[in-house]
Design a protein around this nucleic acid. Structure first.
Lengths: 142, 142
DNA sequence: TTATCGGACGATAATCTTTATCGTTTATAC
DNA sequence: GTATAAACGATAAAGATTATCGTCCGATAA
């Protein structure tokens, strides 16, 4: 089973053309066991238990690598800084996964959502925010 | 018209119990004219043209104030750092606007979206990411 | 199996974003 | 007009992320 896991990870690396390193493998396995939506620091803290000498920079580099390779994904696009919304009409967003550009799309043009007011866990709904993730026209050309 | 605008802003401040300052007013007016999804730095650059002595800290403080007051809103919740997704089943997120906690909700439980593959501007859809913004059970009690 | 080479690693400096501190100034209520 | 609390500006500090660079290790082919 462990062998099988290792084999899977090895294949995963080969598919993406990256080297199979000890740090990379432990990082991957640790992340697989984590729940919720950890930050790089939290992942770092966990991995350090198994590879005490690992560097935070390595964690960052490999998390990005995994995200780019589609192994993991990020919880909503991270734009590095706070962004404010000036458009006061009902709309959602198209976010380019390559260049991170954000474009508005009117609620009606998008089609969607059946709004429910009751959700599991007693969560009180204020509004829906939909991000359509994809590739913008510009990045499709390049 | 200008008088009217000023009056509106004054009322807005009074509704939210905040003082009407020159910086605050210019910031508000400048932001109203901006399109897209500017970062605090970008807003700062614009406001500085009209109030050269303004501090970046003031811009930050008042953007937060505006967001809390519901005057503007932020483009997807900002958690201060990159977050990775460990749940590999189709799901979306419930995000608490008070405490920023993120909870998963299964795609089926949510009801949701009619997926269209074609969107305006030639945007190529990969997937939909829905954030349900609201108040979590814990924050409803407090 | 070993030599070679490029990619990966660790340490840390640097950068970028945001927040906290604090002395001074200003808006508001009286 | 004056008192008081809030807001401002300057800047230090904190937090998050990236860049740099010398060393080390994994992949490939002899």
């Amino acid at each position: 089973m462990l062998v099988n896991e290792a084999r899977t990870f090895r294949e995963l690396c080969q598919e993406n053309g990256i080297a199979v390193t000890h740090q990379r493998q432990v990082l991957y396995e640790v992340m697989k066991t984590m729940h919720g939506h950890p930050s790089p620091e939290e992942v770092y803290a966990q991995v350090k238990k198994k590879v005490p000498a690992i560097s935070l920079a390595t964690v960052y580099k490999n998390i990005h690598l995994f995200v780019e390779s589609g192994v993991f994904r990020e919880v909503s696009m991270h734009h590095g800084s706070l962004r404010v919304e000036m458009n006061d009409e009902s709309h959602h967003h198209m976010v380019c996964s390559k260049c991170k550009a954000i474009t508005d799309i009117g609620e009606k043009e998008l089609g969607l959502v059946s709004k429910q007011d009751k959700l599991p866990g007693g969560f009180l709904v204020e509004r829906y925010a939909v991000d359509v993730i994809g590739i913008c026209a510009k990045c499709q050309q390049a």
